[in-house]
Simulated scan of single mutants.
Amino acid sequence: MTRPFEGLAAEGDLVALREFVPSATAKLPLRDGSEVTVASVLPMAAAAVRRTDGQAFVGLQVQTRSGDLSRDLARAIEWVQQAEQGASLPVVGPEPAQAEVPTRLQDLIDPAAELEVVLHEDFSWWLPEGTEATGDVALSLERANAAIMPTERLSAEGARSAYWVDPGEKAHLRWVRPEPEEKLLAALARLAARGELALDEDSKFAGSFRAHGVLVPVWDLDRDKHPREWNEPAAALGERLAEALSSLDSTPLDAAERRSRDGLRGRQITLR
């Protein structure tokens, strides 16, 4: 499935938690009135876990998946709703033989529901309070904590699904966008031709990568600035980008903007 979370208001955050957010959780209200917690990653990259305190989790960064991540997530939700305390689903298994139409996440949640993502400094939330990790879980916890990159979700209006990430040498803004790729590239090119694509003088556009059918533009940032300092520049950039997207309906790209688009199209980056 090229775009598994299409049609969901939570699409951007689901993609971010699946692709690059290290330790995060969010409550996922279901249509039947219950809820589960969706997580970036669970112990040993499990598909779902019902903790010994009864709290239900489903994971996005899983070991294996089918061609439709939305279907896999829906099946993990259905499993964890019936699971006993302490049970874990390592991977999503084969489709039940009697299933004529596979259930997808879009069938289980309100499409307009947005996620309130909670970022964690470590993975201690894997365990109920007062519980000590042992065995494989302890080893998985140690490895996961050692690999965490500092990450913050921007809170600016109009900058949903925009995350500040510090992988080491420099900080980045990774912004999951819902627009069709070609239209977004055209809007970014329009801003680039005007010299308006950076957030401020301490940033520059680095490129973009594709993830689950959407484009994720990335900016290099001055890592000496606190993540909160990027809220205002991101909000202003969001306004410029919205204007550029709107203008495409009436004004096609000129020659300079087309050259900028060609340059942006070649600037694909690889996450580290």
Rank of each mutant, 00 (worst) to 15 (best):
M1F: 03
T2H: 14
A9I: 01
A24D: 07
A26K: 00
K27R: 14
P29E: 06
S34R: 15
S34G: 12
A39H: 03
P43W: 10
A45N: 14
V49H: 13
R50A: 02
T52E: 06
L60A: 02
Q61E: 14
T64Q: 15
G67I: 03
Q82L: 05
A83R: 02
Q85S: 06
P90M: 07
G93Q: 13
G93M: 07
P94T: 08
E95F: 08
P96D: 07
E100C: 03
R104E: 10
D107V: 06
D107S: 10
L108N: 03
A112V: 15
A113M: 11
H120Q: 10
G130N: 09
E132C: 00
A133G: 05
T134W: 04
V137F: 00
A144H: 10
R153F: 01
R160S: 15
G168F: 02
W175Y: 15
P180M: 06
E182G: 10
E182K: 12
D200E: 09
D202W: 11
S203E: 08
R210N: 09
V216C: 13
W219Y: 14
D220L: 14
R223G: 01
H226T: 09
H226C: 00
R228K: 09
W230A: 06
E257C: 12
G263I: 02
I269W: 01
L271F: 04
